[in-house]
Design a protein around this nucleic acid. Sequence first.
DNA 1: GGCGTCTATATAGGGCCGATATATGAGAAT
DNA 2: ATTCTCATATATCGGCCCTATATAGACGCC
Lengths: 186, 186
Amino acid sequence: MQVTTLCLGALVFGEATGYEINKMFEDGPFSHFLDASYGSIYPALTRLTDEGLVTCKAEQQERRPDKKIYALTDRGRQSLSEALHTPLAEDKFRSEFLFAVLFADLLPRSRVVELVDQRLAAMKAKTEELATKDPGDTPGMDFARLYGHAVYSASVSFLENNRHLIEDIAVDDKPQEAPREVHTHV
Amino acid sequence: MQVTTLCLGALVFGEATGYEINKMFEDGPFSHFLDASYGSIYPALTRLTDEGLVTCKAEQQERRPDKKIYALTDRGRQSLSEALHTPLAEDKFRSEFLFAVLFADLLPRSRVVELVDQRLAAMKAKTEELATKDPGDTPGMDFARLYGHAVYSASVSFLENNRHLIEDIAVDDKPQEAPREVHTHV
DNA sequence: GGCGTCTATATAGGGCCGATATATGAGAAT
DNA sequence: ATTCTCATATATCGGCCCTATATAGACGCC
């Protein structure tokens, strides 16, 4: 599924500029399970306009570049519907963290601990973010949000309960990197 | 993190051909959380050879193209280690299913049910696949496998318990698509 | 015998990300 | 008062990467 189709989906929620569509992928309703950036969104909107799937009206602004407001046409809405009736790609998951974990036995324990701590913090933040319901959300957004919350919660639990599995296979830190003044503790 | 780095990681498990590295991404230990294909792997191996991070010995085969067997050099191993000590990219998750779910209210109920059924079947298959331990797996692979199992299990549970949320907002199927002979039930 | 699958390398085409350029206003920091 | 950062807004370039395809023999299945 290409960025053009994703843009059609974005415009179902109302007319928008390329800038606003980009925000939907960065912060908005798409941010947790889709990706697209300026480099693909602007060309996509041009293509869609050429094909008559969206309309573009330029709004003049003082001392600013014109704002181009895009809106779905009937053909655009139909094109999205067709895309949603053809087989969808499987979910894709990419994790450099799990890649690194495969080589935990080559890393110092402190680095593995750091990686787990970072991942755990990131996942907790996402879990919390997805815990609060926004009244403006559609039922579909609610479902996606709850889905994400369930998955990230499971992720956090797993990491907390099993981090020792990889931390214990990491190599010991070099002595000189650890504090030496243990004897002063007495 | 580029494909070159991923190839270095693949070669930690032993020397391999480009073909075998590709299999690691398709079926093997990387398949659940990384992506790479011929179009990037072969050029990556060429680049790595040029930079002295891997060696390449060609093994002549009768009536076949030469098999090129790649192996890590010390510098290659060090380069991987450096990459694992620089900040890692966040996990990325891409789901056309969740995209479609956002527009459940535009789709016939039968299509939404179909989408959920397909997704559920795919996730159950993955859950089962990750449930069995392979004796050849490293501790890191075990961790990644259990992690995936936990996440997919949570995913299956959520879908089973909450599918009604989106199925109920889908539009009714057109009457002519549904069986008409309800009255014969008596 | 024919068909599909597996082994094995390689490339062309096109899509996409990341970074950058261009302007300017608002608000915060110092 | 001045500087700095952030937000608005469009657009493109370079380079990386995926998809599909080409090539070619072996092997098993029907």
